[in-house]
Design a protein around this nucleic acid. Structure first.
Length: 575
DNA sequence: GCCGTTTTCGGCCCGACTGTTTTCAGTCG
């Protein structure tokens, strides 16, 4: 069972306990651990087998035994008992935004409804609004959510959310000059639940008023004097929060989250006799409130160095900050080049000349052309002959331009189902950069897939494994593999693992990057651009690297050309 | 259920908004 699946069961436990009317703190304990498991760097099943579950923050004797039970039997007895005791369908109701555990229980219990369709019929028949504590408005709101589901865990991919956020900021900037993204978007999570935007103003209510009237706002979910939530493009929730100028640092810190990070920070503040909220920091002894215009001041007041948003997971970052052990994260400007890019020779859009020119304009020293191999029929993959022709062409362009920029000859070569490669070694050895990736037979079982990738890594000509798990976020699940075995093999063979920056992939994902880094596995950040328009997308990959705690030294393509080439050759030891 | 610069017991982060309420529970982040 993977971490995400375990976290899902624990979240359900929290919901069920809450519906059962269990004390708040017990519910919160399960919620906390669910998050910790979802963000755990280690494989929780592995931890359990070594009896180390209690190393996960928030896990004590009780929850540890629940996780052990889940992993050994596939179920948790208390979970089953709760489901049996509660009315049918309660968990289903929770998927509707606006329905929490209390309402879900009442709907199923008092209306005898157990499906979303049944709920819809009950509302249309006027049976919900007559319940005490409910009303016409509540019924209407729930009905609307049923017709246009904005699922609570229907996450928006980063690549889609960022342009929307930028459009909203653009529209608000005349009124709110310091308007900026916050929340999971600022932390560069791979998907975001909603789009958080904030700013300061002399007239918060006026700014909020203008926000809800923006032309692309389809629906207003909530509208108060300092905060509003709306739906744009018929599907995406955008929250705007405005406070007065002197609290900008407090507001930005508060709404950049994560929620768990803030909980730990506020608990820490309490021990210092301080209380933290989005307006300032209150000295509990004197009642005096300090406001801060920057985030640095907020953290400083709490005795901490500023913590980059990408590290605010609510795991161990505050401990690291206290100990002065925060890494100096890699930045986009540290990258000297890009090692994965396609041209019109395979399935890319642009010519070698165009790609070269744009990469140079991007400020890079080098760019690897890595078109597909022939195994990918659909992607117009190169035969060995065309590959050799392309290598000549690539070297020609550099000779002619004589501008110090270096186009590297490469390939994104297919890893076949048996782990062999699409090109013979004699062809691969003529290349500067060989990226080996999986594009087929993705349903292989864990053992075969793991062995297949390790076989590819053992080929001395393979420098990098591209988009390791082949997932498409929200679309195609990752392939099954033994990540620890893969990372160990990468370390042993010196093969680098790619952090693919394409927003629909972001593969390796952040938790795996953390593990890879701990193991000393070499990493590269690559755009996998199929058009020059994708080249700047490298920033998404840098975001993942930063979330993975990488410093510049952890990423091979922060090195200047000669050092990079030496390192890549080093990655190909003779068998 | 978890946890410890007062603690192995008694605490456990903070606030906005909505809808249905005469003071607050539920939901959300």
């Amino acid at each position: 069972m993977n971490n995400e699946q375990i976290a899902g069961v624990l979240r359900q436990m929290a919901d069920l306990l809450e519906m059962k009317g269990e004390v708040r703190f017990k519910v919160v304990a399960f919620q906390k651990v669910a998050r910790a498991v979802a963000y755990a760097t280690d494989d929780v099943e592995q931890l359990a087998s070594e009896g180390r579950l209690k190393e996960i923050p928030g896990v004590g004797k009780g929850i540890a035994s629940k996780i052990d039970e889940l992993l050994s039997t596939g179920r948790i007895e208390e979970h089953d008992r709760l489901v049996a005791d509660l009315p049918d369908g309660v968990l289903l109701m929770l998927d509707v935004s606006g329905i929490g555990p209390k309402t879900a229980y009442r709907i199923c219990d008092e209306l005898g409804v157990s499906t979303l369709e049944g709920l819809q019929n009950a509302i249309l028949a006027g049976r919900l609004e007559v319940l005490p504590g409910m009303g016409k408005k509540t019924a209407e709101n729930i009905l609307r959510r049923l017709y246009r589901p904005i699922a609570k865990d229907g996450r928006i991919p980063l690549g889609k959310a960022l342009p929307i956020a930028e459009r909203v900021c653009e529209a608000m900037r005349p009124l709110v000059p310091n308007v900026t993204e916050a929340g999971s978007l600022r932390r560069l999570e791979e998907t975001v639940g909603d789009i958080d935007i904030l700013g300061t103003s002399d007239d918060p209510a006026g700014a909020i008023e203008a926000f809800v009237r923006l032309p692309f706002v389809d629906e207003v979910l909530a509208h108060g004097p300092t905060k509003a939530s709306v739906i744009v493009d018929d599907a995406y929730q955008v929250d705007l929060r405005i406070v007065e100028h002197e609290s900008f640092g407090n507001l930005l810190q508060h709404f950049s989250g994560s929620k768990e990070h803030n909980v730990i920070l506020r608990e820490r503040a309490r021990r210092m006799g301080l209380s933290v909220n989005e307006y300032g920091i209150t000295d509990l002894a004197t009642g005096k409130v300090e406001r801060h215009t920057t985030e640095e001041e907020v953290y400083q007041r709490l005795g901490l160095p500023w913590i980059p948003p990408e590290l605010r997971w609510g795991t161990d970052e505050i401990e690291l900050a206290e100990q002065g052990r925060l890494p100096t994260l890699v930045a986009l400007g540290d990258l000297k080049g890009d090692l994965h890019c396609h041209s019109e020779w395979s399935d890319g859009r642009d010519s070698l000349e165009t790609v070269r020119e744009h990469a140079r304009a991007q400020g890079y020293e080098y760019l690897a052309i890595t078109d597909h191999s022939s195994g990918r029929g659909v992607a117009n993959g190169l035969t060995v002959d065309r590959l050799m022709e392309q290598v000549e062409r690539v070297h020609d362009l550099d000779r002619k331009a004589d501008d110090g920029f270096r186009l590297l000859a490469g390939s994104e070569v297919d890893i076949r189902a048996d782990g062999s490669l699409d090109f013979p070694d004699e062809a691969l050895e003529r290349l500067d950069v060989v990226v080996a990736s999986i594009h087929s037979a993705m349903t292989q079982d864990r053992e075969r897939m793991t062995a297949r990738i390790i076989t590819a890594m053992e080929n001395p000509h393979v420098h990098v494994i591209g988009h390791l798990t082949a997932r498409h976020i929200g679309d195609r699940p990752p392939v099954e593999l033994d990540i620890d075995a893969i990372l160990a093999a990468a370390q042993r063979t010196g093969t680098a693992i790619e952090i693919n920056a394409s927003p629909e992939r972001l593969d390796l994902k952040d938790t795996y990057v953390r593990r890879a880094r701990q193991l000393g596995v070499r990493l590269v950040v690559s755009s996998d651009a199929h058009s020059v328009l994708h080249l700047p997308g490298l920033r998404f990959g840098v975001g993942v690297a930063r979330r993975g705690m990488c410093e510049a030294g952890d990423i091979l393509n922060t090195r200047p050309l000669l050092e990079l080439l030496a390192a890549l050759k080093g990655a190909a030891p003779s068998p």
